[in-house]
Write a protein that binds this DNA or RNA. Structure first.
Lengths: 341, 341
DNA sequence: CTGAAAGCGCTAACAC
DNA sequence: GTGTTAGCGCTTTCAG
């Protein structure tokens, strides 16, 4: 075993020990095919002997490649993003890239600061969630010609490198189903719409379906809550305390929906008997909730995996088959009931 | 707005525009206090005008600091790790560090490959989960004097930079409670013990409590399953199909426990009436399960936050108050019943 | 307080 | 094939 304190060996050390030039040593590691087997072997042997490990900073500086990409998520512990990041990282690893992650907690300012810090540190590409970002964010990325892909959404943008689905359409289909089940007293619980085209698109999709059915959302039945169990609870308190109560609450995310269900349980409001509740995301929890959640299945993992592959292709200048819009099918379970009248 | 194609401005460009030397420009960004306000202002103004952004690779190469740390988790989408990573990232961001993440999917080989790739890419420090790692991992890290902190566990190590709790003790306390509730027919469902001192310590803690009570684990009631809902389901199938059945299944994680509960529901085995089930982790889901899970509360977020602070202190050579063992209290809910005999 | 200059460790022409 | 030689963009002595 090597002594701990030894300064990290450099490629020059390797070259010296192997009795070859710096250039050959470098080539041995990057384009081994271009070396005579004998010299290659000597370099490799020296590498082994010295326990040589490349210096990424030097490599990045000289080659202008960091072999690193960044992903910025709203938050890292939301299961949908955790799943997506997991898939993302797996694919990047296969492609030989490292993953830097950050989160902005839904604060636009934090996002641009984060992008700046990351561009500064150096990455070859970037993955962002959603299509709605501040000018500061786009300016920073474009100014350096950094390849980037937008995820989760196809709404409100014409940028070609998007990996996602139509939130509008998914919400539209869910609302259609709700209406088909006979509901007319419909409430909506979403998150903050500002800087988030996904919630806007979902609300718009819902509205579109209602409009077609000649229905309308009452302003007092549209509530905006943070994306948390508590947010869902709060929504129920607000929505189910008035004189007239909705027969269904369409929630913008499963987390909200599950919080809402739990609050109903506490208040002895039966779901879906007294009020139906729908979600969006289809996190694992959705199938374990009681009642099981009727929701929209968002392919988080696939988004991550595809985004990774697409970004790497962009970075490496490979041919890009355009990404197809992903499916986000309705998952009909138990939390949405037909209205009996 | 600057033209998109412009090559990234360098510090030399800034210096030239500001009419100062490269050195002064550099100092303006790193030690602004040592500059005459007037020159500082000129540099800053040039930076602004050029839209200058530091080149991290060059900075890292020259300063031998990457301002980046890596965290390697078993998997990124397990909620306990996602929570921990979230807290970790938040604190690192405050400290001015970026976070590189990777996962090894519980494969020892993948872990060492990952560590190697990360050391190569360059980080100032590293966070690992658990104390049990292959020699390859420790050699790699120590050879370069890379600061590192171990998390989640205090068991089976004497390394001073650990942020975690005693899994042995927590499991011991849970088993004590189970015994106190009158159970004697006790089954255990854990994950793979190899390369994972947390599951070993939990099993050992459980055994210790049983031994004190003159009880013993029957080999056929100790099952090893992957950490997934399906693993928990499988455990129930295995454990509850024999002639004699346990009255309680102590699960090594909440995910396992919730899978087990769900399988019981499907098979009409009442929990906790027919069989009690306990978990470990206290993920959000634990309180939403039906019945609510009796479990051990693992402070995932605090582990992340403390690990980040500790690692940064290590990197920056600051004084290190030793980290205290964290609390992992029992959370008594509904899934564990007293045995009525 | 500021300028000059020597690298940091590696890649990528370019010759041989 | 392999060696030589410029840099990559920044930090950091060392003078002044």
């Amino acid at each position: 075993m090597k002594t701990a304190k030894a300064a990290r060996a450099t490629l020059a050390d390797v070259a010296r020990l192997a009795g070859v030039s710096l250039g050959s040593a470098s080539r041995a590691l990057s384009v081994p095919g271009e070396l005579k087997p004998a010299t290659l072997a000597r370099v490799l042997q020296a590498v082994e002997q010295l326990g040589y490990v490349r210096n990424g900073a030097a490599q990045a500086l000289a080659s202008r490649k960091t072999l690193t990409v960044a992903a910025i998520f709203p938050t890292l512990n939301n299961p949908i993003y955790a799943d997506s990041m997991h898939a993302l990282q797996q694919v990047l690893w296969q492609c030989g890239y490292q993953l830097v992650v950050a989160s902005h907690e839904y604060k636009p300012d934090r996002e641009s600061e984060t992008v700046r810090a990351i561009v500064e540190r150096g990455v070859d590409g970037m993955i962002l969630v959603g299509t709605d970002h501040t000018d500061a964010v786009f300016d920073l990325i474009r100014q350096y010609g950094l390849p980037y892909v937008l995820t989760w959404s196809l709404d409100e943008t014409r940028y070609p490198h998007c990996v996602g689905f139509s939130n509008h359409d998914a919400a539209y289909r869910m609302a259609k189903l709700v209406i088909e089940y006979g509901h007319t007293k419909i409430a909506l619980c979403g998150g903050a719409a500002s800087g988030n085209e996904r919630v806007r698109a979902r609300i718009a999709g819902t509205r579109a379906a209602l409009r077609e059915a000649g229905l309308e959302l009452r302003p007092e039945w549209v509530v905006e809550q943070p994306f948390s169990f508590e947010g869902g609870r709060q929504a129920v308190r607000q929505l189910m305390s008035g004189a007239e109560k909705p027969t269904v609450i369409i929630c913008g995310t499963d987390v909200l929906a599950i919080g809402a269900i739990d609050e109903c349980r506490i208040r002895k409001i039966r779901v879906p008997k007294d009020v139906s509740i729908t979600g969006f995301d289809d996190i694992e929890l959705a199938a374990l909730a009681n009642p099981k959640l009727t929701t929209v299945r968002v392919p988080s993992m696939e988004i991550g995996a595809r985004a990774a592959r697409h970004l790497v292709a962009l970075i490496e200048g490979r041919e890009l088959h355009a990404e197809p819009a992903l499916d986000a099918p309705l998952v009909v379970r138990d939390s949405l009931h037909k209205v009996v009248s």
